[in-house]
């Protein structure tokens, strides 16, 4: 029964991923990022830090995000980010601000798959350059494993950038081995990027709602470049 569901769900994802390939969009240097789960818990707030370090033929790019998130109710959570990266002169500084809303559409486990939605608005620091992202988050559980997919549509606009759309698809297969160690495989696609690689995540609980979640992934670009890999790290403290 589980294997039949897994096959059906995988077919669905492959069909849906065609949506992403059909879109025309420009290069995205930060396709590898977080894979969002479609769940929200009320009474929860968190601090988050993320790092994405990509090494390819063009050199190394480093992006870091720090954020504070707070759930509004049992369906909606908001998170505000400060985004920093390293420029051509090797100086690291603030480059953007971002506000993110995540909406849990269905109760976990009620239907065949769990559904959520993501809305993000990012503004470049001291520039009239904006990015609006929206997407669908889907997660399906198969015993101790789960598949999570994100279908994202991104619109970039502003006076210092050519207005354009692009889309991204992210997929994660995760096995809940023990709370502290949950191995996964992640896939990231955009028009000119396909990345695949292992990741590990875990959770350590303290008292009450206090807990630390961590994620570590190493994604190899499969674009034909001689070198293209991304290290991603995320740490969340929920309280």
């Amino acid at each position: 029964m589980i294997s039949r569901s897994l096959v059906l769900f995988t077919i669905s994802l492959v069909l849906a991923s065609g949506l992403v390939k059909a879109e025309k969009h420009e290069s995205s240097n930060n396709v590898v990022d977080k894979i969002y789960h479609p769940y929200v818990l009320p009474l929860e707030q968190e601090f988050e830090w993320r790092l994405m370090s990509r090494q390819n033929d063009e050199g190394n790019s480093l992006v870091q995000r720090v954020a504070f998130g707070h759930s509004i109710n049992d369906r909606l959570t908001l998170e505000a980010y400060l985004v920093g990266d390293r420029d051509e002169g090797d100086d690291f500084g603030l480059v953007a601000y971002e506000l993110e809303a995540r909406w849990m559409i269905t109760d976990q486990g009620k239907y065949y798959a769990d559904w959520g939605a993501l809305f993000e608005l990012e503004k470049e620091h001291q520039e009239d350059q904006w990015e609006f992202t929206t997407g669908i988050l889907v997660e399906k559980e198969f015993g101790r494993a789960s598949i999570t997919s994100n279908y994202l549509l991104v619109y970039e606009f502003g006076s210092t950038i050519e207005n354009s759309f692009h889309s991204e698809f992210r997929l994660q297969y995760r096995y809940r081995f023990i709370p502290e160690i949950q191995p996964a495989i992640e896939l990231y696609t955009a028009e000119d990027f396909v990345g695949l690689g292992p990741s590990f995540m875990g959770i350590h609980r303290f008292e009450g709602q206090k807990q630390v979640k961590w994620e570590l992934g190493f994604i190899a670009g499969l674009n034909g470049d001689s070198k293209d890999h991304t290290l991603r790290v995320a740490i969340e403290y929920e309280f």
Partner: peptide, 15 residues
């Protein structure tokens, strides 16, 4: 693709 995906989800929602 979108229609196929949605129908599959709805079919299984009956469960």
């Amino acid at each position: 693709s979108l229609l196929s995906f949605s129908l599959l989800m709805l079919m299984h929602s009956a469960s």
